[in-house]
């Protein structure tokens, strides 16, 4: 079976985030890495292709400056090829604009049976892109999957709910978003890393996709930032080193709050 995985390349979460003062968007000019949320989708896709006995994993990504480092990581894990959409016109895209771009890229993948995404990205965390992609492509979808199995032309999913989980069946092709921890992502082998360097990455512009620049980027986002303010900081209380009796301080604190 052929699986498409939407992956995002994001600023390293270990680096403090910053907003560009002029555009007021997240600065993305530093090093970008594969969003950890997407490593689960990539791993899941690789496992499903193996279980099916054949097929391949194609990555789809939208990133500035022709960035491919995150894609190379996923290719090193075992994905076969990637489509990257990179275009200055995409700066400032909202989730819907992003979904339009990714949907167009996905349409170029022949024989795609299943499209996997994370439930949300680690930097934008809007959480709406999977359903937006499914809506644009008119495909059925299941979000918040904590387990996935493919049975012929049906995907069987355990979907996280507030009360526990639902078992959901969905005909392929479909869009499924996966929660973190759904599988243990593999570490790329040295061989995989070397092979990734020559795996095909097709880089496309907005025009290549047949999209109008007015539908994406700042122009298409339909929103504008009014202000950016520092939030009031929370003041910290006392900090104690444990000398073996710190637990008593906690008990006393809770007692004082009358919650015991």
């Amino acid at each position: 079976m052929n699986v498409v995985v939407c992956v995002k390349q994001i600023p390293d979460p270990a680096d403090p985030g910053a907003l560009d003062p002029t555009t007021k968007t997240l600065k993305r000019d530093g090093k970008l890495i594969l969003d950890e949320s997407d490593s689960y989708g990539v791993e899941m896709a690789l496992q499903l292709v193996t279980a099916a006995g054949g097929g391949e994993v194609t990555l789809v990504s939208m990133a500035p400056n022709g960035e491919v480092s995150g894609l190379r990581t996923a290719l090193a894990m075992g994905a076969a090829k990637a489509i990257l959409v990179s275009d200055d016109a995409l700066a400032g895209s909202d989730a819907l604009g992003t979904a339009k771009v990714l949907a167009k890229a996905i349409e170029r993948v022949e024989g795609a049976d299943l499209i996997l995404t994370a439930t949300e990205s680690s930097d934008g965390y809007t959480g709406t892109v999977p359903e937006q992609i499914a809506g644009i492509l008119d495909l059925p979808s299941v979000t918040f999957a904590k387990q996935i199995e493919v049975d012929g032309s049906t995907v069987k999913v355990q979907r996280q709910t507030d009360a526990g989980f639902d078992e959901v069946e969905c005909p392929l092709p479909a869009v499924v978003s996966v929660t973190a921890g759904v599988v243990e992502p593999r570490y790329p082998s040295f061989k995989g890393i070397m092979a990734a360097k020559s795996k095909p990455v097709d880089t496309l512009t907005v025009a290549d996709l047949g999209l109008d620049a007015s539908q994406v980027g700042w122009a298409g986002a339909g929103q504008e930032i009014v202000s950016i303010e520092e939030a009031p900081a929370r003041e910290a209380g006392e900090v104690f080193e444990d000398d073996g009796t710190a637990f008593e301080k906690i008990v006393a604190y809770l007692d004082n709050l009358k919650v015991l």
Partner: peptide, 12 residues
Amino acid sequence: RSGGAVVTNRHV
């Protein structure tokens, strides 16, 4: 086509 997903069981 978009409406294809069905819940077959609900676990609480």
